[in-house]
Design a protein around this nucleic acid. Sequence first.
DNA 1: AGGGTAACTTGTCGACGACAAGATTGCCTC
DNA 2: GAGGCAATCTTGTCGTCGACAAGTTACCCT
Lengths: 189, 189
Amino acid sequence: MTGTRGYHHGDLRRTLLAAAVDVIEESGPAALSLRDLARRAGVSHAAPAHHFGDKSGLLTALATEGFHLLAEALHDAGGDLLDRGVAYVDFAVGHRAHFEVMFRPDLYRSDAEGLVAARRRAGEALHSGVAALSRERPTAKDPQGDALAAWSIVHGFATLWLSGALPPRVGDDPRAAAREVIHRLFPKP
Amino acid sequence: MTGTRGYHHGDLRRTLLAAAVDVIEESGPAALSLRDLARRAGVSHAAPAHHFGDKSGLLTALATEGFHLLAEALHDAGGDLLDRGVAYVDFAVGHRAHFEVMFRPDLYRSDAEGLVAARRRAGEALHSGVAALSRERPTAKDPQGDALAAWSIVHGFATLWLSGALPPRVGDDPRAAAREVIHRLFPKP
DNA sequence: AGGGTAACTTGTCGACGACAAGATTGCCTC
DNA sequence: GAGGCAATCTTGTCGTCGACAAGTTACCCT
């Protein structure tokens, strides 16, 4: 059913998205080409347009998928704020292609219906982690400010890590390094 | 001398870089086209190649210029860590085109000679701010970890701000919002 | 004055994105 | 089980772009 033989591919949409992830992980979003994706999937050069409309349609789908995956990853990380922060970084490193597209709204249609919903879902998962913080640290006066600071520090660390801008001494374990960085923002007794 | 008349443009290199900044600020780096820049400057479609070799050459020059500007901005901000952090965010917002290219190494030649030097200069300006912190807070045990956390939080805030991902309630003054966020990482007595 | 060289032009090629129009297949209904 | 219908994919084409090659112009220096 998912075989590639025959006139109908069977699962071309998913195949194209997976190929896009491969290309972006190898060479970045700038190197993405619909014709190349079609070649990798073994279909004609115009086949992708049927599923995504145009290039930004494909990237919209990729970003939407990314926000859903991020929301799930944050959910699975449990209620602890530190763990959620590490999960955020872990998602960025483990789904680098999705992450690189998600925060580049000039590449896709940021007002697309499914995307808006997925982004809101991820945003809520992000905020509920900070709500847990307010419970365990009653001294916190401004949970929204805490949320912004937490989001900034994990997002910045992830972005710097992915761009290769960090000095080598940071090491090669993003989870451990992220944990230390987040710990500085919310020190535990 | 800098007039556009005659066969020789006079200052084409700078004109092209300025036009690239305009395009990127309007539509992002993905929309950049050498032929469009040439049209804006009133020269032939192949003129840019003479100055920059190819597209990544132009973006290498833009990133190099960006790192120099960032180093100067950090220097001018003075010795206080908080002020330097605000200056970092202010640079990102005020030179959004440069900033967006600088941390996207897949767009340019990250091993180019001038670029490596400029990036190191900016890195030193970033670190010397944290050295000042160690002086005023002798309790700090790990200045390199502090530097990484500080860089992460300002870089993350700037990136989120530029991507438009922040909720509207953060307001429209990036300097003030950045100051609050950084203050959470390094609270003053 | 004149030659050398940097700066710019014209011309061309292959690749890409987008669009149009046609071919094929699975499915649904009667 | 036969016909029709819609979704899926193909072929063909156009304008634009990046890159390269080869030629042209103007500045500069002695």
